[in-house]
Design a protein around this nucleic acid. Structure first.
Lengths: 332, 332
DNA sequence: ATGAAAGCGCTAACAC
DNA sequence: GTGTTAGCGCTTTCAT
């Protein structure tokens, strides 16, 4: 059986409350504190978070909900969250919803009772459904915006602008866009951004396709049937599938066609040729979201502190185009 | 504030214990149960697991520790665990140790107090360190064996045998093996398996290299400088890097050189050419480990039940060679 | 600066 | 079958 405060108290010859104070930073004499700490670590004492949470009203745990851990994009976000959580000594419950909006809503319900806050990464559920189950005071959305719920997003408008400016500079005037899932927030974002990225560049919308490698393979033929000299894919996985299909059809990239993705997943450096892509901060977004939710629930320890100067509702992280070898001069 | 048992009890006109019984499957009259359930769901009651855990001694939560979530291999394992956990209504704490053995040990210490059991996936710490901090009764290792700690592993000996038999059948007699990290359990496993996979096939050991895409790139030149007609890589990431380097040097695969990997990560289908690889069950291993730890801690609710017919200590999952296009007839 | 006592939400004995 | 009581491990008043 694990050691409890009482065990430590007995071994240290003090009361349980003193142990508690020594360990959580209450008013104790330096000497006592040091002694208690020594005894505690010597006994391998680890506080029972459940018991602590029962009284403080805070569990010290967070919930993190993602659509699919296998997607390298989400893996990066999760990694950012867990890394920051480790530094903050905060537990992270993980839930993978398998891209199922219903599972997402269930996960929110199950986790919200047993955590201090929730991080929802790219949730697939609709705005209204989300607003129904989510507690805005202790929830942060990652890479998704819903009016009324705080969020951390990447500046896709700027990233898109950079991508199109890059292609324009290389002489491209007709650029295909391979769209992802119709109704997704990210997809709408990208399309809106493309719409007014550059006056001189005509955007040819293709798709939509699944946001996967296979979706990209499928898109390859669509792109070749269009008059575009360059293509912007919904994300890197689609871009990679595209590259794969183009190679299979003997099309040289970037000579005949330039390809640009979104996300900058690690695979983007491993393709043939390495992929030019709009880098979106993934780990950084996860870490920022964790900090944000901590700030919002923090300090007050459950008690909602009286209106303190309108807490931030949104963080927009910068994006940057990473130019590799899949983009080049038009008609080269 | 969330509803508590007392709230439900008051609203239902019964005592708190009756509510508890109705919700957890105790002896209650069907009518009462139904009524309580209705009131509970109407109030949106969600049990406070912390409080429940305090008394039952079980938290209903598990800890899952992995070296690196970005590694698609581990992502698959995690996914297997979380999927099974969802079905069992069991929370999963995730910890990413960044391949750091010390962080691993710390994670074990921090999590073991606040979970019912621990799943350690491919831990990097040494046998002795692990044995020191781990509670064998409530821990299961995934893809790693340590005497005295239960584990779920894949049959690498058989997988390796299949791979070498495949290459032998294609006429290969000299096969290079690109070794991974010297001191890793997995690496030793594979080498032992290769040593007596086939009497007619000579194994040329190369490396070791980092178990990454970059490691594979590096290994590409090593392999070409050897007389081997085929190469087995430490894992798929190395094999993919190898393929990349070979392509860059204009070596055609499988005509000039056959390449085989281990793991069958999803990327293995996306390479040029698609990779022949020893498929190891990843999600299945995670799910099996979860079931195993539940079985071992289950029922008794904390109280270690008196010796019940020697609980299983090890599960070995089958592997199978997936033949794609990176392997072919020798000297073709 | 420290100890005693109360209580967080829940379930397990024990009565009835 | 149901209510009452006690207590899990911890923190936090309230005394001192």
């Amino acid at each position: 059986m694990a050691a409890t405060v009482s065990d430590v108290a007995r071994a240290a010859g003090v009361s349980a409350s003193t142990v508690s104070r020594a360990l959580t930073g209450g008013t104790v004499s330096p000497a006592t504190r040091e002694m208690v700490m020594a005894v505690a670590s010597q006994l391998g004492y680890q506080p029972n978070r459940a018991a602590r949470g029962l009284i403080t009203g805070r569990t010290g745990n967070l919930g993190l909900i993602v659509p699919d851990l296998r997607n390298p994009f989400f893996a990066d976000v999760v990694k950012g969250v867990t890394t920051r959580a480790r530094a903050l000594d905060c537990g992270v419950f993980i839930a993978d919803t398998d891209e199922d909006p219903r599972a997402e809503l269930e996960a929110v319900a199950a986790l919200s009772r047993n955590t201090d806050g929730l991080l929802l990464c790219s949730p697939r559920a609709g705005d209204d459904e989300l607003l129904e189950v989510v507690e805005p005071a202790s929830t942060v959305l990652i890479h998704r915006q819903v009016p009324g719920i705080p969020s951390v997003v990447a500046d896709m408008v700027d990233g898109t602008r950079q991508a199109i400016a890059h292609l324009h500079a290389l002489g491209h005037r007709r650029v295909a866009y391979v769209a992802g899932p119709e109704d997704s927030w990210a997809s709408r974002q990208r399309q809106a951004a493309l719409a007014d990225a550059h006056a001189d560049v005509e955007i040819l919308r293709l798709g939509s396709v699944a946001p996967t490698f296979q979706g990209g393979v499928l898109a390859g033929d669509l792109v070749l049937a269009s008059p575009a000299t360059a293509v912007v894919a919904y994300n890197d996985m689609v871009a990679l599938g595209l590259l794969h299909r183009l190679a299979a059809r003997g099309i040289s990239v970037p000579e005949r066609l330039s390809v640009v993705g979104y996300d900058d997943v690690s695979l983007a450096t491993m393709s043939h040729p390495p992929l030019t892509t709009v880098a979106v901060p993934k780990g950084r977004a996860g870490a920022a979201a964790l900090d944000m939710v901590q700030r919002r629930i923090g300090g007050a320890g459950g008690r909602p502190r009286a209106s303190q100067a309108a807490p931030e509702q949104e963080i927009v992280l910068g994006t940057s185009l990473v130019v590799r070898s899949s983009s080049g001069v038009a008609g080269a």
